[in-house]
Every structure is written in C-alpha cells, then in structure tokens.
Simulated scan of single mutants.
Amino acid sequence: MPDGLRASLNNLAAQILEAEVLPQAESLGIGVIRLTNGAVVIDMGIRYPGSWSAAAYFVRVGLGGLGQLTFNTYPLNGFLIPAVQITVTNPLIAEMASHVAYWKLNHQGKNLVISGPIRSIKGSDVFARATAYRDVAATKAVACLQTTEIPGEELAELLASEIGLPVTSLYILVAKTASIVGAVQVCARNVEQTLPTLYDRGFDLAKIVQAEGHTPVVSIVDDEEVAYGHVNDCLIYGQESNIYVRCQDEELIQILNDIPFVKNRGIYGTPFQELFQRCRNDWALVPRDWDAPCQVNLINLATGNIFSTGSRHLGILTSDFLGVKE
C-alpha cells in the first residue's frame, strides 16, 4: 500500500540538504543562517539571489526526496520560455503528506502557509491527513515557506513545539515569490494542485500510481504582488499534469468536468493577480475551487483509457510574458 512507506521524509530531506545543498551554498546563490536557538534557515531567494539549481533542490526537498524537478522549454507566441517538469514517486505521500502548501499557522498576527516534510510528522492539516502516513521516525524536520521575511527564533520555536521535536533539529527553507527559486517552486506545484482537487471530489488517492506535470515559468519579476499573480497564472492557465491510476473508468468520468479551473465560468480568463486582490491578498480567503489545475490527463492503467479535462489560456500567459493583451 502507498501509505506503508517506512522511510522518514524529513530525514531524507535533511540528508539532501546536508550532503548536497549546504556544502555548495555559495555556488547555489543561497545563504545559511544559524539562529541562536540552533535552527537553520536556508535563504534561497530573499536576501540571497538563489539560482535555477537551488530551485530544483527546493522542490526536491519539499517532496521529501520522493520526486525531482527538471527544466525544459514551453512555446509561447513564437518564443521559447522556461518551463519545469516534475516527476513524483509515491504521489500520495510525497504530495499530500509533504509538498502540499496547506498547513496554516498563525504567527505574530499573520497566517503563514507551510509546506514540506514537516507536515507529515503529525498530519498538520486536512490534506496531510488524507494519507495514513506519519513520519514517526523523524529526528530532523524540514519546513518550506514562501515568504518575504527571514524567519526568526520565535517562529522556529513555534514550529518545533507543534511537531514535538527539538528546535535544533529544524531546517526552514525560504524564498519570496519574486525570485528565481520562488517562481520555480510555485510553478512546480502542478501535481500538488491536482491531487487535493481529486481528493475534494472524493477520488481515492491510493489508486494513484505515478504522477508528473509540466508548467511554464512565464516571467520572474521583482514586484512580489505581480510575481504572485504570474506564477499562479502559470498553474491555472498553463500547466498540464499526467496522473497514472488504477481504477474503474466510471470513477474518473463522474468527476472529470469538476476538476479543472475552467469550471469557474464566471472568473475564467481573469488574471490571478486580480482574483487575489478580490480576496484581500489573503490565501485563506481564496475559494477552494479557485485552486484548481489547468489541464489534467488521467491515464487508467487498468483499462488503457485516457481521460483529459481542462484547457489552457495562452492569452493570459502571453500577457504576463510580453505585456500583450490578447
């Protein structure tokens, strides 16, 4: 069973950081900040510039070592723009227990959204609890934050207390959206966006065998609000995920039209920056149906049939990339 993974996602992620990331911090363009209480903050895009390679590590670590990111290109209006491909092993655990950004933690009057293997230790939110996997073997913990501020000792202490581990065991990866790492790691959330949507529709995620997805990275800009809009446009208007399942075809057919973002007929075609402003720039106020994938292909290994749903909106992506309205 997929939930029967024995490995510690947090320990696997920590091993990647300690063996591959920290030793080459300078060449990756990242900063390593050791807080006075012993927690380690890895700055991949706030005070430090980060890099494409650092972004790949951010995603790999966020998946608990059960997936990886590679770079390719995406044709858009005669241009080849950067794109990412993510491949995921054991999607149920890698995504729902780790990668999904859904643990909301109030700190100093702000609602922080936390992703990464740390969510798997106690099943910190509804999506982490969608799998029976709990990282009971963790001796270290790894959290990922999309933020503009370097976390301090208070946040580290809060995280440690929530999971019942010493603060000295904690790694916190951070990047703002308006950075290479920030843009890439959000655009790499194609499968991460699709599985919770399937869960919302009542599909048994244990029937998912493998998953992979592709997303354009239309632009990287210095303005955090604009960047936030662009990367989410990439997801709701440009990504495509391939989900390999074993089930009855009818299980897919009955939910097919309720999966993609295009189901939101009243707002489809509206740039996400505008939609986010309607929600007072607070992700907690964004309706669940808006956090939906662009295009999904469900490949049923049991029957050989493929079911596709959704559509891309190249006009929005072109506007983001070239500033041209179509």
Rank of each mutant, 00 (worst) to 15 (best):
273 Q>T: 15
174 V>C: 06
75 P>C: 05
116 G>S: 06
203 F>G: 04
235 L>A: 08
89 T>Q: 12
185 Q>I: 00
154 E>N: 10
91 P>R: 09
175 A>S: 15
237 Y>T: 08
287 P>C: 10
46 I>A: 04
125 D>W: 11
243 I>F: 07
109 G>Q: 10
252 L>R: 08
79 F>M: 12
320 D>S: 14
14 A>I: 00
200 D>R: 15
169 S>M: 06
276 F>R: 14
299 I>E: 07
219 S>I: 07
205 L>C: 09
208 I>G: 07
139 T>G: 09
279 C>D: 10
8 S>L: 02
108 Q>C: 01
237 Y>N: 09
39 A>V: 01
163 I>K: 09
310 G>E: 08
142 V>R: 02
213 G>H: 11
166 P>M: 11
93 I>H: 00
121 I>G: 04
313 H>Y: 15
219 S>C: 11
127 F>C: 00
314 L>N: 12
110 K>Q: 15
154 E>Q: 14
318 T>L: 15
300 N>G: 08
113 V>K: 13
113 V>T: 14
116 G>I: 02
212 E>L: 09
131 T>F: 06
31 G>N: 01
25 A>W: 00
129 R>L: 15
68 Q>N: 13
186 V>N: 05
168 T>Q: 13
216 P>W: 10
96 M>G: 03
9 L>T: 03
61 V>W: 04
67 G>P: 02
16 I>T: 06
150 I>T: 07
103 W>V: 01
126 V>S: 13
27 S>F: 03
254 Q>A: 07
314 L>W: 12
290 W>V: 01
113 V>M: 09
148 T>F: 02
222 D>K: 13
256 L>Y: 10
100 V>I: 11
49 P>N: 06
128 A>G: 14
217 V>C: 12
178 A>V: 03
121 I>C: 09
297 N>C: 08
79 F>T: 01
89 T>C: 04
30 I>L: 11
277 Q>C: 06
177 T>L: 11
270 T>G: 04
84 V>E: 07
117 P>C: 05
117 P>E: 09
171 Y>C: 02
203 F>E: 10
88 V>A: 04
7 A>M: 05
172 I>S: 01
164 G>R: 09
10 N>G: 04
173 L>A: 08
191 V>G: 01
280 R>V: 04
246 R>V: 10
